[in-house]
Design a protein around this nucleic acid. Structure first.
Lengths: 229, 229
DNA sequence: CACTGCAGGATTGTTGACAATCTGCAGATT
DNA sequence: AATCTGCAGATTGTCAACAATCCTGCAGTG
């Protein structure tokens, strides 16, 4: 920013906001596994607050789709079955494709630089063999992709999806993947954007998502539209 | 649907849910205009409930992006400036394009039928000169488009966007538009999907959104990326 | 032996009151 | 005259208790 502004804004995050963030992270990284029931009283005691702010926090997570609320029953961490995971990646494909196309249409050089930088972070993480860092860099790459499009709404929707993505990755922690491949796919995405080839980019994203899906749902092929509300 | 299910589920909507819906509608249709401050105490009294459930309801609206919360200041109905409206339609374009492409890829005949039906509803509304009905049918068409893709996440994100869209339409109530054009654009969209031409469809949607934007922001052309945090 | 009805225990949904914070205005000061 | 200080009023943020609802297990009955 151009204005100096020597002091940071004082901590103005609401209690509910703090709790929301902590719970979200706990869910993301599997400390609260899928299906776990969240007891308001227990959590409130743990956080050292009353049930009011805690309720507010959980309601936010419900709206984000991370927590499922059954009336008078309780709150449960959402479980992602194969169908859900497919939907998640379909939604991500939609958002990220749109973001990339926007970047290409606007010929945003800054976005290309940011993506290259994010890509290089992945590369060095892969070289040093830090798999956790590589995973982080991977997610970060996709966040940069969407945020570069400059659409607050797209970005907000994407953030929610990325939290769920992290849940998936946490779930298959321990599974292995060739870091080379992982980096190469992102290289293709980056270069497609850099060269301004919109269709090549869309194809690369599509393939990338399919790749991820195949790893997450080994057996799953078709979505069988039979039981389809 | 095929399963009979002779009884509807008993009314199990929480108080907060009811209030959320009412507030949302009030905002959508301009009964609570942009910038209006929402007083918790006043609203709670009007709804005849305590501040607890009401707070829960407003929090949901905040997360949906319809209401802006300033800490210790109050809640304000969000105002959509030109930049926001552009973003809104960009996001809609992203979602609806993705939905249509999915439908085309899966060759969903049912979706084509549903779209044709929605299109015909627009047509008859246009012929009878019922502009409000035409407007409703228009929004319904886009909802059908997205819901036909069968992606819960896409649909949920789209619903939020459609509420904001309705806000925009409410704002320019009284402005006129040739119903013929409006219907024709949706005809092009429908036929592009029916014929399976993915790129033609994307073009039709793009153009449709641009058309709407031009009407909403008469002077606005470029998004000037200068002040772009 | 299977089904129905009911209390026990626990959880959520709701309420009204209390505390912290912000805005705007009156009054004092330079 | 302009600016700063402090108070009043109003609003939100938080809390602990009350009421309604739901699940579980057991006794009773055909």
């Amino acid at each position: 920013m151009s204005s100096p502004q020597p002091f940071k804004r004082v901590n103005r995050e609401s209690t509910a906001g703090l709790i929301t963030r902590q719970l979200r992270e706990a869910i993301m990284f599997g400390r609260l596994g899928p299906g776990t029931q969240l007891s308001e009283a227990t959590l409130a005691a743990e956080f050292g607050v009353s049930r009011g702010p805690l309720r507010e926090a959980t309601q936010r997570l419900v709206q984000e789709g991370l927590v499922r609320a059954e009336p008078h029953r309780g709150l449960f961490v959402k479980e992602l079955d194969a169908h859900e995971v497919r939907d998640l990646y379909a939604a991500r494909t939609a958002i990220e494709t749109a973001a990339g196309r926007t970047i290409i249409r606007q010929r945003q050089q800054r976005a290309v630089l940011a993506l290259r930088s994010a890509y290089e972070a992945m590369q060095s993480a892969a070289e040093s063999g830090a798999l956790d860092d590589l995973s982080d860099a991977d997610l970060h790459f996709h966040e940069v992709l969407v945020s570069s499009a400059g659409s607050p709404r797209l970005q907000r929707m994407h953030q929610t999806l990325m939290v769920e993505t992290r849940m998936c990755l946490t779930a298959l922690q321990g599974t292995y993947r060739d870091p080379e491949d992982q980096v190469a796919e992102h290289r293709r995405i980056t270069e497609a954007i850099a060269s301004g080839d919109s269709d090549a980019f869309a194809g690369a994203i599509e393939e990338h998502m399919q790749e991820a899906l195949d790893r997450l749902i080994p057996g799953g092929r078709s979505a069988d539209a039979a039981t389809h509300g």
